[in-house]
């Protein structure tokens, strides 16, 4: 199945990004295709390379980057939401790209299921 994922919350305060990552990992393992992960609202904070959590905690930004590298998963950060929050190309961790909301609608059109993770 082709899956799209929408993440509406940043890392740590909410579990949304953790749950989405675990869902994506399980889906890939079962042979499903993740056509795109789209980061919106505070979800854009998942993309910043400046995140530096304590070493005994999970690092969600790195986890997403690794998934992009190993499975070719597209990680799209909404440009308008990112600009409001001080995130630009210089802040992006590997594998993340900034693009427009059209990418979210396209994911909804192209995927068999669009799954939202939020508050």
């Amino acid at each position: 199945m082709k899956l799209g994922i929408l993440i509406n919350e940043g890392p740590f305060t909410h579990q949304a990004s953790d749950s989405a990552y675990q869902f994506a990992t399980a889906a890939l393992k079962k042979g499903h295709e993740i056509i795109r992960v789209f980061f919106y609202h505070d979800g854009v904070y998942n993309s910043t390379k400046f995140a530096d959590p304590p070493s005994d905690d999970r690092n969600l930004v790195q986890q997403w980057s690794k998934m992009a590298e190993e499975h070719g998963v597209e990680l799209i950060v909404c440009v308008a939401a990112a600009m409001r929050r001080g995130i630009n190309d210089d802040a992006l961790a590997p594998g993340f790209q900034i693009s427009g909301l059209g990418q979210l609608i396209e994911a909804g059109i192209e995927a068999d299921r669009l799954v939202t993770f939020g508050d």
Binding site: N8, Y40, H41, A80, A81, G100, L101, G102, L104, I105, E106, G108, I109
Partner: peptide, 19 residues
Amino acid sequence: TVYALESLEVVLISAAFDQ
């Protein structure tokens, strides 16, 4: 919270895609 304002932006884009 910003949800309502930013969600409205998605609605407008989806309309631009003639959904």
